[in-house]
Simulated scan of single mutants.
Amino acid sequence: MSDKAPAWVVPVMRAGYAARGAVYLVVGGLALTAAIYGGAAQGTTDALADLRGRAWGVPLLWAIAAGLVAYMVWRFVDAWLDLECHGTDAKGLVARAGQIVTGIIHGAIGGSVALTAMRGSGGGDGTQSVTQKLMQMPWGPWLVMAVGLITVGAGIYYAHKGISESYKDHIRVTPLARRLDPVMKAGLVAEGIVIVIIGLLVAYAGLTNDPGEAGGVGAALGEIRAVAFGRVLMGAVAAGLVAFGIENLVEAVYRVVPRRSGPDVMTLARRARLKAEGKLQQAAA
C-alpha cells in the first residue's frame, strides 16, 4: 500500500462535504423558519423535496445526490486506506468502522434524494422504514435497540468533536476558516444533540416493539419543540444545523487529507499548539 493517498480522493471528498453541507443548510434553514413563523420541522427527505418546485431544483437535487454518493465513496476509501492515519489498534479500527457506517448512511440518503428528483415527492420518514425492516429480522427489537444505542454514541462523538475542537486537526489555516471556527464548533455540537435524540427514539422503538416511535431529523426537532420553551430551543438547534452545514462547506474547501498533504501542513490545531508553545512566529518564518 502506498504511503501517499491517490490524488482523486481529494475532489471526491470535497464534493461529498459540499453536498452534505447543502443538505444541512436546507434542513436547518427550513427548521429555523418553522421555529420563527410556526409549523412543524421537516425531515431530511421532505425538506429536500421542497427544492424540486423551485428554479433549478431538480438539477440541484441530482447534484446533491451525486455528492452524497461521493461522500460515501470517500468514507469507504478513507477507511480502507486509512487516509486519516487512525491506525489498526482497537480505537483506530472503531474509528474506521464508523467511517464506513456514515458512508452507508449518506449513500442511502443520496439514493433517496435521487428518487425525490425523479418522483417529485418526499419518501416519508426513512428512519421509521428502516426500523420496521429491522424489526422483521431475527432478534429484531434487540437489533433496533442496539442500532439506537450506537446512534447515541455517534451523537456523543459529534458533540465531543465540537467541544474538544478535534475537528481542527484536519482544517487548513486560512483567515476565513479562523473566522468561522466558532460556527463550526456550534454546528458539531448541534448535530450531536440531534443525533443523540434520533438514537434515543430508535432505541425506544426497539424497547416498545413499535417502529412508529422511531424518527429522523424532523422527529428529533419535534421532540425538542415539545419541551418547555421548545420553540426557542428548536430555533437554536435549527440554527446549529445551519452552522453544521457551514462547517461541512468549510471542510469541502479547506479539509486536508493527512496521507495526501503530509504532516507539516498548517492546520487550525497545529497553529493553536504552536501559539500555546510560543513557536508560531518561528514556524511562520
Rank of each mutant, 00 (worst) to 15 (best):
G120T: 06
V253K: 11
D181W: 13
Y24D: 06
I198Y: 09
D3E: 11
V130C: 02
A40H: 15
D181L: 09
D181N: 15
D169A: 13
V94C: 01
G16Q: 10
M234E: 12
I105G: 05
G162W: 11
I198Q: 14
A35D: 08
H86N: 10
R271V: 05
V250K: 05
E213G: 04
V58T: 11
L201A: 08
P59V: 08
A219M: 07
W80Y: 13
A19T: 10
R20W: 12
F76V: 15
A47D: 10
M137Y: 03
R75H: 07
R172V: 11
A146S: 04
L188W: 13
Y71K: 14
T174R: 14
V9A: 14
L280I: 15
T174A: 10
A70C: 15
A40V: 12
A146D: 02
Q128Y: 00
E277S: 01
A65Q: 13
P11R: 07
G222H: 10
M118P: 00
G67C: 04
L143C: 00
V144T: 04
A228C: 12
G123K: 00
Y167M: 06
V12T: 15
A186R: 15
G199K: 04
H106P: 03
D50T: 05
V183N: 04
V23N: 04
R20F: 12
G67E: 10
T267H: 07
K275D: 09
T267G: 09
P258F: 07
A34S: 15
L83F: 06
A146T: 05
G123F: 00
K185L: 14
D46N: 13
R259M: 15
S261N: 15
A203K: 05
K279I: 03
L207N: 12
K168N: 06
V256E: 07
A18K: 13
V227F: 11
I100T: 03
V250M: 06
T102D: 03
V152S: 04
G111T: 09
L188K: 09
G57K: 02
E191Q: 10
G187N: 11
G124P: 00
L188Y: 15
Q282C: 02
G153W: 01
C85E: 06
G153N: 05
L25W: 05
G123N: 05
R178V: 14
P211C: 01
A47E: 07
S164T: 08
V202C: 01
P138L: 01
S112Q: 02
V152M: 05
Q128K: 00
R270I: 01
A18M: 11
R119E: 02
G120A: 08
L61G: 03
G111K: 00
G107M: 07
A269V: 00
L134D: 01
L268W: 08
I109E: 05
Q99E: 09
A220H: 06
T208E: 08
V113A: 00
L93P: 00
A159D: 07
R75N: 14
K279L: 12
V27D: 13
P182K: 07
S112R: 01
G57R: 06
K185H: 14
D78H: 14
T45K: 10
A55M: 10
T208Y: 06
V69N: 10
S166A: 15
A177L: 04
V237W: 11
